[in-house]
Deep mutational scan, measured.
Amino acid sequence: TEYKLVVVGAGGVGKSALTIQLIQNHFVDEYDPTIEDSYRKQVVIDGETCLLDILDTAGQEEYSAMRDQYMRTGEGFLCVFAINNTKSFEDIHQYREQIKRVKDSDDVPMVLVGNKCDLAARTVESRQAQDLARSYGIPYIETSAKTRQGVEDAFYTLVREIRQH
């Protein structure tokens, strides 16, 4: 089974770092803004072998026109913010609204991801993020692309959301 996953969120929150940590098991430290990259990885989730087709997208506003296209083809979405960047957390709402509009559905598989949880300088409390996820009816997972904490959990949870859909 193949799953088309799309990673969305503001610029600099760590979308590529999360994806590369999942696929290649290493942490990319330097920031190089993405336009669009796709990665494929075969994994076993709950005993089922599946192929993850992951689209890593641009957070930069100037590429926002490309969003409709990949939102149409994606089956599930990782909505990523950084726990030390309140603005990126506030941006999640717009991504969710755009996904709902493009998919013409209120019920699209999504996982809210709070990345950079290895950093002490948190400005978005776990509780705020949990409340937001609960209001959307989606899971919330904290990750660190640096330490790998929660990385597999985030992507695998999204696959489970798609399966249950």
Rank of each mutant, 00 (worst) to 15 (best):
E2Q: 04
K4V: 06
L5N: 03
L5S: 01
L5D: 00
V6C: 08
V7L: 09
V8G: 04
G9H: 01
G9R: 03
G9Y: 00
G9M: 01
A10H: 08
G11A: 14
G12P: 08
G12Q: 11
G12A: 13
V13R: 01
G14M: 00
K15W: 06
S16L: 01
A17C: 06
A17P: 04
I20Q: 05
Q21P: 03
Q21D: 12
Q21H: 10
L22R: 05
L22M: 14
I23L: 15
I23W: 05
Q24G: 15
N25G: 11
N25K: 14
F27C: 04
V28D: 12
V28S: 13
V28K: 08
D29A: 09
D29N: 14
D29F: 09
E30D: 05
Y31D: 05
Y31N: 04
Y31S: 04
D32V: 04
D32K: 02
P33D: 01
T34Y: 04
I35L: 13
I35E: 01
E36Q: 04
D37Y: 02
V43T: 12
V44M: 08
V44C: 09
V44R: 12
D46S: 07
D46G: 10
C50S: 10
C50G: 10
L51I: 14
L52M: 13
I54F: 05
I54S: 05
L55S: 07
D56F: 00
T57W: 03
T57Q: 01
A58E: 09
A58W: 00
Q60G: 14
E61Q: 14
E61L: 12
E62Q: 14
E62C: 11
E62F: 15
S64R: 09
A65G: 13
R67L: 10
D68V: 00
D68N: 12
D68S: 06
Q69H: 07
Y70M: 15
M71E: 04
T73L: 13
G74F: 00
G74P: 03
E75Y: 13
E75H: 06
G76A: 15
G76D: 04
F77G: 00
C79W: 06
C79P: 00
C79L: 15
C79Q: 01
V80N: 00
V80T: 08
F81Q: 00
A82C: 12
I83F: 04
I83T: 12
N84C: 15
N84A: 15
N85R: 03
T86K: 13
T86V: 11
K87E: 15
S88R: 03
F89L: 11
F89V: 14
F89Q: 13
F89Y: 14
E90S: 07
E90G: 09
D91K: 15
D91Y: 13
I92W: 07
I92K: 04
I92N: 02
H93F: 08
H93K: 14
Q94N: 15
Q94A: 07
Q94P: 04
Y95N: 07
R96Y: 14
E97T: 15
Q98D: 14
Q98Y: 15
I99S: 01
I99A: 03
K100R: 12
K100I: 08
K100E: 07
R101F: 06
R101K: 09
V102F: 10
V102Y: 07
S105I: 15
V108G: 02
V108T: 11
P109G: 02
P109A: 12
M110D: 00
V111L: 08
V111F: 13
V111M: 03
L112D: 00
L112W: 05
L112R: 00
V113Q: 00
V113K: 02
V113G: 01
V113N: 00
V113S: 00
G114K: 00
G114P: 00
G114Y: 00
N115F: 04
K116V: 15
C117M: 12
C117T: 08
A120S: 11
A120V: 07
A120N: 12
A121G: 11
A121Y: 13
R122E: 12
R122V: 07
T123Y: 06
T123K: 07
T123I: 07
T123W: 04
V124G: 05
V124F: 06
E125H: 07
E125K: 09
S126G: 11
R127N: 11
Q128D: 13
Q128K: 08
A129L: 14
Q130K: 05
L132S: 05
A133Q: 03
S135M: 13
S135A: 12
Y136H: 07
I138W: 02
P139S: 08
P139K: 05
P139A: 06
Y140A: 00
Y140T: 00
Y140H: 03
I141N: 03
I141F: 04
I141H: 06
I141M: 03
E142G: 04
T143K: 00
S144P: 00
S144K: 07
A145C: 12
A145V: 10
T147I: 12
T147E: 14
Q149H: 13
Q149K: 05
Q149R: 05
Q149I: 05
G150Q: 15
G150Y: 10
E152I: 15
D153E: 10
D153T: 08
A154S: 08
A154P: 10
F155T: 02
Y156D: 14
L158N: 00
V159C: 10
V159M: 15
R160E: 06
E161A: 10
E161Y: 09
I162W: 03
I162L: 14
R163I: 13
R163K: 12
R163W: 09
Q164V: 04
Q164E: 13
H165T: 13
H165V: 09
H165G: 14
H165R: 14
H165Q: 15
